[in-house]
Amino acid sequence: MTDILLEVKNLKKHFVQNKGFLKGKKSVVKAVDGVDFFIYKGETLGIVGESGCGKSTTGKMIMQLLEPTEGEVFFEGANIVEMPPNDIRHLRKEFQMIFQDPYASLNPGMKVREILREPFIIHGYNKKDIDTKVTELLKVVGLNIYHADRYPHEFSGGQRQRIGIARALALNPKLIVADEPVSALDVSIQSQILNLMKDLQKSFNLTYLFIAHDLSVVEHISDRIAVMYLGNIVELADKQSLYKEPLHPYTQALLSAIPVPNPKVKKERIILKGDIPSPADPPKGCVFHTRCPLVMESCKTIKPQLKEVESNHFVACHLYNK
C-alpha cells in the first residue's frame, strides 16, 4: 500500500477586491474554490488548466506562500495551515518549489554560489560542508563548477532553470511543487529539463506536484492528472484513462484543441465557444456550463461535485450523475 504524502481538503482562496471607493462595493475573486486531492509518495501529480483556473494559486497555498481562505493542507498527516510560522520555517526543508520564470526567481545581484549556499545557511548547516554540497548540487543538475562564480544573467534560460532546480533540491525535500517549470523555455531545452526532473525523481525519491498549462508536457511527466477550470477540479484520473477516455466535456475539448505536430493527423476538433469567464464573476451551477457543448438544464443551477465514476477516475459533471 502506498502512503499519502500530501492531502488537500476543501482548499479555497478568495481575493477581495475593492471596486471603486465611493461605492464601497467589494468583489470576490474565487481563484480557488474548494479543491480536494492527495499525492502519493513518489508519484507525480499534474495540475493542468488555462490561465485563471487557479492552478498556481493552489501551488502557492500548498507552499504556504499564500494563506488559504479556507481548507486544510496535510503534509505527512500534519495540517500545515494551522502550524505556527516558526514550525513552518523549519518544515520548509521538506517541500520546495521550482518557479516558472527562471529569470525572475534568481536574485540578479548574487553569484550562483551564493544562491545555492543560501538554503544551507538558512537552515544552519556547518560552513565547511556547504561548499562540497554546492559543488555536488551543480553536478547533479548538469552544470559545471566554473559556473558557480557567475551571475544569473550570464546563463541561458535552461541553465537558469537548472540553478532553480538545484536550489530546490538543496535541502533534500520530499515534495517539489513545480509551477510551470518549462513553459518559459525553448522546445529543445524543455525536453532537457523534463528529462532532468525525471532522473532526479528516481535518484532522490521525489514527489512532484507539476503545474502547467501544456497538457502534452503534463501528460508526459505525470502519473495522475487533475484538470482545473475556474478554481475547481473538473476531472482527476491517471494519465492513461484521462487521455484515452476523457469524461468531462472540458477535458475533451482541451485534448482536442492541442495542435498535433504531425501534418497527417486530421482530428475532429471540439472548438469551445466564447471566453473563459472572469473568476470575479463565475457562472452559477457548473462553472463550465457557459461554454459546454453538452449543457443541460440542471448544469445552470446545481454545481456538480467531484465523484469517482470509475475506479480512480473522478469527474465533476452532471452527465455522469446516475
Binding site: V187, Q190, S191, L194, S216, H220, I221, P261
Partner: peptide, 26 residues
Amino acid sequence: KGLINSIPKLGNYTERLDSIPGNVPT
C-alpha cells in the same frame, strides 16, 4: 530531427524525451 523528437506527444508514454544537448550559442 531533434526539435521534432523533443516535444512530448499526447498518448505516447515514453520514459525519456530525446533532447538536444547544450544551449543555443550566444
